[in-house]
Simulated scan of single mutants.
Amino acid sequence: MFAPGNLARIWLCTQPTDMRKSFQGLSALVKNQLNHNPLSGQYFVFVNRRKTQMKVLYFEPSGYCLWSKRLEQGQFRVSASASGQRPLSWTDLQLILDGIEVQKIRQYKRYQHSI
């Protein structure tokens, strides 16, 4: 399991993605469809049409990394967005990977140090 830091920016592509794509194809999707720089160090999450496969593309100083997961049963619970992308927190990504769907969210205020 890969573990991005809590401050890592994670983007979910809400449109279905062809899972035959690898480094070149996914980085082109990031640049052309999501309008982000694939070399930025952010994490980009892609899910196929049947929602049974997920790929995460990110760039480290030494090169691209591609993490993949295929479910034997069930589906990843991701909702569509009009813009085609939505930001995720590390916790949100963990919930999607573990198959946990939160019905009601209530987040209490916490101190957050400004950068």
Rank of each mutant, 00 (worst) to 15 (best):
N48S: 08
G25D: 07
Q112V: 15
L97P: 01
P38E: 08
Q73D: 03
T17C: 08
L57M: 08
K69P: 01
K55W: 10
K55F: 05
H36Q: 14
K109Y: 13
P61A: 10
Q73V: 07
M19I: 07
F76W: 05
R50G: 02
Q33E: 15
G41W: 09
L12Y: 03
N32Q: 14
G84S: 06
P38D: 05
L26W: 04
D98A: 12
I100Y: 07
G25R: 09
F44T: 01
W67H: 11
L57S: 04
A80T: 10
G84T: 11
S81R: 11
N32W: 07
C13L: 10
M1Y: 14
I96V: 13
L7Y: 12
R9N: 13
R49Y: 07
Y64C: 00
V102L: 11
R20F: 08
V45E: 00
K104N: 12
S89F: 09
S114E: 15
P61K: 13
E101N: 06
Q73W: 01
A3F: 11
K109N: 13
I100C: 02
P38S: 06
F23S: 04
S81G: 00
Q24F: 06
R106C: 14
Q75V: 12
Q33L: 07
T91S: 08
H36I: 04
L39C: 04
L95F: 08
R9H: 08
I96G: 00
H113D: 14
L88T: 06
G25C: 04
R86W: 01
A28C: 02
R106K: 14
H113M: 15
F2Y: 13
I10T: 01
F23T: 09
E60A: 08
A82T: 11
I10F: 01
D18K: 14
S81Q: 09
Y108R: 15
Q42M: 09
Q112E: 15
P38C: 05
L12S: 04
Q73R: 12
I100D: 01
G74C: 03
P87G: 11
Q15T: 12
T14D: 06
Y108S: 14
T17A: 09
L12F: 10
Q42H: 13
S40E: 04
D98Y: 05
Y43W: 15
F2H: 05
V102F: 00
S89N: 06
W11C: 02
K69W: 05
V30E: 03
R50Y: 07
P61V: 12
G5A: 11
G63N: 11
A8Y: 05
L97H: 01
R110A: 14
Q75P: 00
K31T: 12
G41V: 06
Y111T: 15
Y43E: 05
W67K: 07
I105C: 06
K55T: 10
